[in-house]
């Protein structure tokens, strides 16, 4: 049924023709036009490129790193950048380039884990509150307000005191304070969608609440939530680095970028590279996530769609 009989069409024509013959072609066309728009945004492409590089570096860290990130060599402490050590060495003689390469794994681990926790929780709470309204909305939103009023760093301090410092506790602390903005966004989106005629039409056709939330509201909320989470990723990286800087995130000798910056600040005046290299890594990756998020908004948001 999905076999296209018009064999003389090239792939490009098939993706742009007005004559759509099946659902798969419609989907491919949508992706094609979105991708065309995305490719015309150079900043978003730079962001995407940096993120791809980050993913590759994290995946192939053992192949890319020139040294063992944990191996100390006190004889070669605080060496400036050179051919032997691309980014120099820190106060214990560890190769900073290798530590940054391995540190990308920790950064990605935190970002992914927080996003995976925050997205579903935020959307579930926000969509439920926005769609049902009334008491459900009031209760859920007050809970959201309570979580929103926790300062994430202070909450992380409390977690560190209660559970001991560590990467997992940092992730929990960040996630607990990162979902309320997502919930508010999903609620606001849901409330504008809820009163539209196509929801009334779906109700008239006998669709239940769960069906309406899943098939009608979810696909319209998803793009803005994805964009918001992507833009949040920069903030997550910075918070994680801040926690590392305070000694509450990844524990030494793990090569976490924030912790590396913190350890290097004592030698900042004599050995600039110890702070600058991990600091630049944080800057570049956060910026890349922001640029990518902005490009993604143009790509995904239905209000900008063609």
């Amino acid at each position: 049924m999905t076999v296209d009989t018009r064999q003389n069409l090239t792939l490009r024509q098939w993706m742009t023709t007005e004559e759509v013959t099946n659902g798969r072609q419609a989907f491919v066309q949508k992706v094609y036009w979105g991708a065309v728009g995305f490719l015309q945004n150079p900043l978003a492409l730079i962001g995407l490129a940096v993120i791809v590089v980050l993913l590759l570096v994290a995946a192939f860290a053992p192949l890319i790193a020139t040294h063992d990130p944990l191996a100390q060599d006190l004889g070669a402490a605080l060496q400036p950048p050179s051919a032997a050590h691309y980014f120099g060495t820190d106060e214990l003689g560890r190769d900073i380039f290798s530590r940054i390469v391995f540190g990308s794994r920790i950064t990605l681990y935190i970002v992914m884990l927080v996003s995976v926790i925050v997205g579903p929780i935020g959307m579930a709470v926000g969509m439920t509150a926005g769609y049902f309204g009334g008491w459900t909305d009031k209760v859920l939103m007050r809970v959201t307000d309570i979580f929103l009023s926790f300062p994430s760093l202070v909450l992380a301090l409390a977690f560190a005191a209660a559970l001991g410092p560590g990467l997992e506790n940092a992730v929990i602390a960040i996630a607990l304070t990162a979902w309320p903005p997502i919930a508010r966004l999903a609620r606001a989106e849901t409330m504008t969608i809820r009163s539209s005629d196509f929801i009334a039409a779906a109700t008239l056709q006998g669709a239940g609440s769960i069906r309406i939330l899943r098939h009608y509201i979810f696909p319209l909320c998803l793009p803005s939530v994805i964009v918001r989470i992507t833009l949040n990723m920069a903030g997550i990286i910075l918070t994680a680095a801040g926690l590392g800087f305070l000694g509450l995130g990844a524990q030494p000798p793990a090569p976490e970028w924030g912790a590396m910056t913190s350890a290097g600040r004592r030698f900042m005046l004599d050995s600039w590279w110890v702070v600058t290299m991990p600091g630049s890594a944080i800057l570049i990756v956060s910026l890349a996530f922001n640029l990518f998020g902005d490009g993604l908004r143009d790509f995904l948001d239905p209000r900008h769609g063609r």
């Binding site: 659902g23 419609a26 539209s196 005629d197 196509f198 009334a200 039409a201 779906a202 009608y216 696909p219 319209l220 239905p302 769609g305």
Partner: peptide, 10 residues
């Protein structure tokens, strides 16, 4: 406003 913008006619 009465057709879902992300749903195909099908």
């Amino acid at each position: 406003g009465s057709l879902h913008p992300k749903h195909k006619i099908d």
